[in-house]
Simulated assay, not measured.
Amino acid sequence: MSTTTPGRRGGTAYGAVRGVAGRLSVVTKGVDAVPSDGLTVGAAASLVGVTVRTLHHWDAMGLVSPSERTAGGYRLYSATDIARIHRVLIYRELGLPLDGIADLLEAPATEPLVEQRAQLVERISRLQEMVAAVDRLIEAKNAGLLLTAEEQVAIFGRDWQPSWVAGARERWGETDQWAQYAERSAEMTTEDWKQVAASISTLDEDLAAAKRAGVVAGSTEGNALAERHRASIGAFFDCTHSMHVCLGRKYVADAGFTAHYDAFEPGLTLWLRDLINANAVANGIDPETATWS
C-alpha cells in the first residue's frame, strides 16, 4: 500500500493541530511579557493576537476578565489573566464552544489537570486522524489507486496494466466523476479491492453466460444485466444512463476493453454495448445523441 508524502497536509484539521502546538509554544513567552502592573485591553489583545472586541466579549460573558486596576480605576490584565486567555485560545483552536470552555476553566481546583489534558490529547488525536484522511484523499485523487503496481496485478490479474490508472487520471482527472472516484477509493482497503475485483469477474462471467444463453438487448433480463453493469460502475462514481452509453461506445472503440470482454465470450463487447443502448432507450435516452452528462 502506498503511503502519503511526508509534509503534505490537509487544510483545516492540520491547521487546528498546528494552531494548538503554536499556542502552547507561546503561552510561557506571553505570560512572561506581562509587566508587573498589568496590561491594558489593547496591549493584552495585541499580545495574544485577538481583537479588543473579542476580549470585551469574553469579559462580558465572564470567560476572562481583567483582575487588576490602575490608580485611576482602569482595568488591567495580569499575567494570570493572560495565561487564562491562552487557555481559552487553545480550547477554541480545538473547536470547543465558548460555553464548554467556560466549564473547563471553572472546574473545581481539586479536579486533576491531567483530565483536561486527556481531553485535549483526544481531540488532537481526532484531528490528526482527519489530517490522515485528507492526505489519503489527496493521494487518491493524484494517484487514482492506492495500491502498488504489484498489488494491482495480484488483485486484477496478469492482464492488468497499472499504466491504465495514470491514463485514466490524465483523461478524466479534472472531472467530477474522478473526484467522486478518488473520494471512494481513498476509503478502500486491499481487501475491499479484492471484493470489487471478484464482483466484476462474476459479472463478466454472468454476462458471457447470458450471451451464450441467447439473452437479447431490450428484454427484461437484458435490461436487468445492463443495470447491474451500470451499478458496478456506480460503485466508483454516479453513472447516468447517458454516461453508460458513452462507456459502451468506448468498450467497442478501445481495443483493450474489447479484448477484455471478448476473452470471456467472443462478441461480448458488441453484445454488451447493445444491452446498454437498449436499456438507455427504456430509460428515455437516445443512444445516438447521448453525451457524458
Score class of each variant (00 low, 15 high):
I85D: 09
E129R: 12
D262S: 05
S78K: 00
G49A: 05
Q161I: 11
D176F: 00
K250C: 08
C246A: 10
V281E: 15
S242D: 14
R158N: 10
L225A: 09
Q119I: 13
M243K: 07
L147A: 15
G19K: 03
G218H: 02
G100M: 03
A45N: 03
R136E: 14
V20P: 00
N283M: 05
A213S: 10
S65G: 01
G214P: 09
E122Q: 15
A140T: 02
A210W: 04
Y91Q: 13
A255D: 15
D204P: 00
V48I: 12
M61Y: 00
T54Y: 00
K141T: 13
A253W: 01
P266V: 12
T190W: 13
A109M: 11
L105G: 01
T291F: 01
R184G: 10
R87S: 10
T70H: 06
R169L: 09
G30V: 06
A280E: 03
M61K: 08
L98K: 07
V153C: 03
V48E: 10
E93N: 09
G100P: 02
G30Q: 12
P162N: 11
G218V: 05
R273P: 04
Q161K: 13
E122V: 11
W292N: 13
A140C: 05
E150G: 07
D103P: 00
K211W: 03
G38V: 05
H57N: 14
S46K: 15
G234F: 02
R171P: 06
R87Q: 14
R171Y: 10
Q177S: 14
E129W: 02
V17N: 07
W178A: 11
W193K: 06
Y74S: 11
D59A: 09
P287Q: 06
I82V: 15
T4Q: 10
T4M: 11
N283P: 02
L268E: 08
A253R: 06
E129A: 15
A168W: 11
G284T: 03
A132D: 13
G144I: 03
V50L: 04
S67N: 04
V134G: 12
